Amino acid sequence: MKTENYDVIVIGGGAIGLASAYHLGKRKAKTLVLEQFTFVNQLGSSAGVSRQFRIPYPDQYMVQMALDAQPYWDELEKETSETLLDQVGTLWFGDPAVHSTEGNIAEAEQALKALKVPYQTLTAKEIEEKYHFRNLPETYTGLFQPDGASINFKATIETLLSLCQKEETVTLEENSPVLKINQIGERFEIITPNGIYITKKLAIIPGPYINSVINLLHFKIEATYWNMSSAYFKKTDLSIQYPTWFVFQNPIGENGNQFYGFPAVDWDHPEYIRVAPDFVIAPLAEPSDRTLIPNQQELRYTSNWVKEHMTGLSTEPEYTSTCLIALSKIQNKELLIDFAPNYIPNHQNIVLYATGWAAKFTPFLGKIMADLVLDGHTDFDITPFQLGHRFFKAL
């Protein structure tokens, strides 16, 4: 079995792992990426082909992070002939009193205003007239922010993979699950079925499989797992186009009653609109419990909402998909970006991105992770995300 030495080993070859390797390669760090499945797979939180990029958040630091991510998207887009961000704007609307995992409309408006980000406020009638929704309660309000976009996520991952393959200091290993992590002085020995690898620094980014890796270092994060469903509705009126959107509503029993959607795009079932519930009826205890089959009741709630409130679409989906994500008990399901807890030897040389929705930050988060693992710090203030002291638990 081969043994090799690296400056950094990245565990997890999804979007964030590849973005981290890309930035490590730009700094000429000898880097190994270990992916337990194949690259560009459908088994983790990088599954699917589209994501939302948005600026609205209820907290100023999240708005700032989205703003800071924009030039990194511009930089990445110059490396490919593909369009990575289809700018169609972000529409948030619904009950202004509702607080969801995405936040609250009024708080998002305050954060945008504080950072002088342009947006437009809307009444329920204006939302219906401009954006093709219908039968909205008169009390609903909304905001539209023009920088929102639909992310060509599959092309993003493929672009990052191609850039890593071209970088002479980056090595990519797929079908290489980490079986054991030994600590030898200040170094880590990583054992996989394909070899033994030595490094002084670890970037752990395996998405929903985070505990399967950090358990090898004798700690865990308390998380729940969502097997998220999506549905694709055929456009019956081809002239209609939707922005990216999210609706804030109170739950009705098991129906979380929060939904989000995308425009029709060339790379993801053209002439279809993707709509998804932003809730799950039955969270999973472990990633291994997931299936690739959407929850049928969640799809029924989604179809009923589309039938009642959207125009120009069929009322039943013709395609469906799923995506697995790990979510912590952090309020609003925010990101956790931190070093390993200090009771782990060499904790200062172990950097983790652990939970939360981060696709919209992909190239920027890769830069943050690369700086943290090489330098021990980053120019971006990650204090709000350094929550390991609250959510990591020793085994």
Rank of each mutant, 00 (worst) to 15 (best):
S50W: 01
R51T: 02
F53I: 01
P56W: 04
D59Q: 14
Q60E: 15
Q60G: 11
Y61R: 11
Q64W: 05
Q64D: 06
M65N: 12
A66V: 08
L67S: 01
Q70G: 04
E75G: 06
E77M: 03
E79L: 02
T80V: 12
T80D: 03
S81Y: 07
L84G: 02
L85P: 05
V88S: 01
V88T: 04
G89D: 03
T90C: 01
D95G: 10
P96R: 00
V98M: 04
V98L: 06
E102I: 07
G103W: 08
A106N: 09
E107M: 08
A108E: 11
A108F: 06
E109S: 12
L112E: 06
L112V: 12
L115A: 09
L115H: 13
K116H: 10
K116W: 06
V117L: 09
V117A: 03
Y119C: 00
Q120W: 12
T123A: 07
A124L: 12
E126V: 13
E126T: 13
E128I: 13
K130M: 09
Y131S: 07
L136S: 08
P137D: 06
P137Y: 06
E138R: 09
L143Y: 00
D147F: 04
G148S: 11
G148L: 04
G148R: 04
A149E: 00
A149M: 03
S150E: 09
K154H: 13
T159D: 03
L160W: 03
S162P: 04
C164W: 01
Q165M: 10
K166P: 07
E167V: 07
T169C: 01
T171V: 10
E174L: 02
S176E: 08
I181Y: 06
Q183D: 02
I184A: 05
E186C: 00
E189H: 10
I190F: 02
